[in-house]
Write a protein that binds this DNA or RNA. Structure first.
Lengths: 218, 218
DNA sequence: TGTACATCAGTGAACGCGCGTTCACTGATGTAC
DNA sequence: TGTACATCAGTGAACGCGCGTTCACTGATGTAC
């Protein structure tokens, strides 16, 4: 874990930093991790990186642009990992959905700072097309999963609209992630089970109601 | 809707404000509504209320104490409304749970600022016993609902631990509230259905898997 | 009913601080020829 | 291979600003007698 300020001692010696944009993002991430997405100043990360307070303006219009870029990258990785977990619905829709759930929580656990930038900032998504695009790419995986689930619904069972199923899966995952995984350490509620088990059980119960079980729609 | 700053024109004329504590909370709520829980300064709400910057210190140790108090009151009202909606499980556990879901979203919709203070601040709950107590009171309603649901599970159906069911209900509700209801206007994702319908359908599908339907456990 | 006094709530001035942003600048890099 | 030059990335000083917090203070309130 990188401590804010620590990267200030990075060996530069040269007038040009060479990789300032990346270094700023990295420093911002570690501040977010410690204090939440509102917990740092633009000048502060410049100092942490060992650069004059004017330097970041070469790379980001302002603080918000930095956070938006962090969120965008977060969504990109998030989408990629969901896609990998979904794996085209193999070996089985239910198992693939469970894998998506695990990947969802794994991301929130491994990159809580990115997750906070993505979901806790209350950003005007409409005004950041690149951000919305990346977010849509992630949600598209969940939609595909919901489509597959609905296609596999046992005849005679009620088949809810796939979009609705996607939103249920997303909301349950996000709810568990934000209540029991994300955020600074003291903030999350303690529960006597792992968030992963909780989500898996929730998804299973939900999907079972659609007549889906692992292996049933092979 | 009260605008920040507006309450500065409240007719005082007197040296003592008389109700400063309440006025501060009210002003803070409207700032949170506009800019999120991190979006105001302690001195700023003093100015908004028309009082010297030192005055708030008579009532709150610091900014965090103010937010904690807002969150605590939010939890109290939240718990009260969930209790009313639950109504002792009448007329039927499933219907009562749906009513809880409606009350949950209604609260997030009607008091988005309180909801943000309660769930978006990343507060160290352990260090604020009064806050945790109030939060527990709200969660106790959901636990009671889950207990009733589990008691009514149709014989032969899998019966998950009641705590787990409570967490599922909570997470689904919170997920829907924070993704599609709460927050500043531009931040929430647009979906082609009401959050209320989305949550109701989700709860129904979930509970159906436990063998529960409205009226079945009368 | 009146008065003396303790308590309380808010004042306003002051402080040091760090922030966001700008500016003319300068050192490094890369490229055309 | 060498040189001139355009471009770029970071400098550092400066600015005005508002914040958080403190302090001795003062005006209002309530209460004991």
């Amino acid at each position: 874990m990188t401590c804010p300020g620590e990267s200030g001692s990075r060996s530069r010696g040269t007038y040009h930093h060479g990789n300032l944009r990346e270094a700023l993002i990295e420093a911002a991430l570690s501040f977010i991790l410690e204090r939440g997405p509102a917990g740092f100043a633009f000048a502060e990360i410049a100092r942490a990186v060992g650069v004059s307070p004017a330097a970041p303006y070469r790379h980001f219009r302002d603080r918000n642009a930095l956070i938006a870029e962090i969120a965008r990258r977060g969504y990109e990785r998030f989408a990629a990992e969901l896609e990998r977990a979904w794996n085209g619905g193999r070996p089985d829709p239910v198992i693939a959905i469970e894998n998506c759930g695990k990947a969802y929580l794994a991301f929130a656990r491994r990159e809580p700072a990115s997750y906070a930038a993505m979901f806790q900032t209350g950003f005007p998504l409409e005004q950041e097309p690149a951000l919305m695009l990346a977010a849509d790419r992630a949600f598209a995986v969940i939609r595909a999963a919901a489509n597959a689930a609905c296609d596999a619904v046992r005849p005679g069972t009620i088949r809810p609209p796939p979009l609705m199923v996607a939103l249920h899966i997303w909301a349950l995952s996000h709810g568990i992630a934000s209540l029991f995984v994300g955020g600074p350490d003291g903030a999350r509620r303690k529960i006597p089970m792992s968030p992963e088990d909780l989500l898996e059980a929730g998804l299973l119960i939900y999907l079972q109601s659609l007549g889906l079980r692992a292996g049933i729609a092979k």
